[in-house]
Simulated assay, not measured.
Amino acid sequence: MALNEVHISSLVVHCDPLHLEIIKKQITEYDGTEIYGDSPEGKIVVVLETENQGFITDTIDAINNLPNVLSTVLVYHQIESSSEETELQYKDAGIQHSQIEGEA
């Protein structure tokens, strides 16, 4: 039985405000990233939608290493998961399974 997962995460990126627009452009070049907002002070809200947790940490590291980025912080991580068997059983019922990081 295969497990299908979607990881949804949000990040706050703090950058030098003078470079806000170029950093936003660089962030959107990463797969699965979407910018939901920014501030004149150089803060950017980024949402990632990925298939595995490793991609999240790799993307955080890559963004954090961009020139003029001061910090990148993970503020939310949710895992939507279901097995193929469960998907088939509950597809018509519209039931989804989700887990927020930290829950058992």
Rank of each mutant, 00 (worst) to 15 (best):
A2R: 15
L3A: 12
L3C: 11
L3S: 15
L3D: 07
N4W: 10
N4S: 15
H7P: 02
I8G: 04
I8V: 15
S9I: 06
L11K: 09
V13F: 15
V13I: 15
C15Y: 04
P17A: 11
P17S: 12
H19C: 09
H19W: 13
E21P: 09
E21S: 10
I22C: 13
I23C: 08
I23M: 08
K24A: 07
Q26W: 05
Q26C: 13
Q26L: 13
I27Q: 05
I27E: 01
T28I: 14
T28Q: 15
T28G: 10
T28C: 12
D31G: 08
G32D: 06
G32T: 09
G32Y: 09
T33H: 06
G37R: 12
S39Q: 03
S39F: 06
E41D: 10
E41V: 09
G42P: 06
G42T: 04
K43N: 15
I44K: 12
I44W: 02
V46N: 01
V47Q: 12
L48R: 12
E49H: 05
E49G: 09
T50H: 09
T50E: 14
E51A: 10
N52P: 06
N52V: 08
N52S: 07
G54T: 05
G54K: 04
F55I: 12
F55C: 13
F55R: 10
F55L: 13
I56K: 01
I56V: 14
T57Y: 12
D58H: 10
I60A: 00
I60M: 04
I60T: 02
D61S: 13
A62W: 06
N64Q: 15
N65C: 07
L66F: 08
L66C: 07
P67Y: 04
N68Q: 05
V69W: 00
V69M: 02
V69A: 01
V69C: 01
L70P: 00
S71R: 06
T72I: 00
T72Y: 00
V73R: 10
V73D: 00
V73E: 05
L74H: 03
L74V: 00
V75Q: 08
V75T: 11
Y76C: 05
H77V: 00
Q78I: 01
I79Q: 12
I79F: 02
E80K: 02
S81P: 00
S81Y: 03
S82I: 02
S82L: 13
S83M: 02
S83L: 04
S83Q: 03
E84H: 07
E85T: 02
E85V: 02
E85L: 11
E85R: 13
T86M: 11
L88Y: 03
L88C: 04
L88G: 02
D92A: 14
A93R: 11
G94F: 03
G94W: 03
G94P: 01
I95E: 07
Q96P: 01
S98C: 08
S98N: 07
Q99I: 12
Q99T: 08
I100N: 10
I100Q: 10
I100H: 03
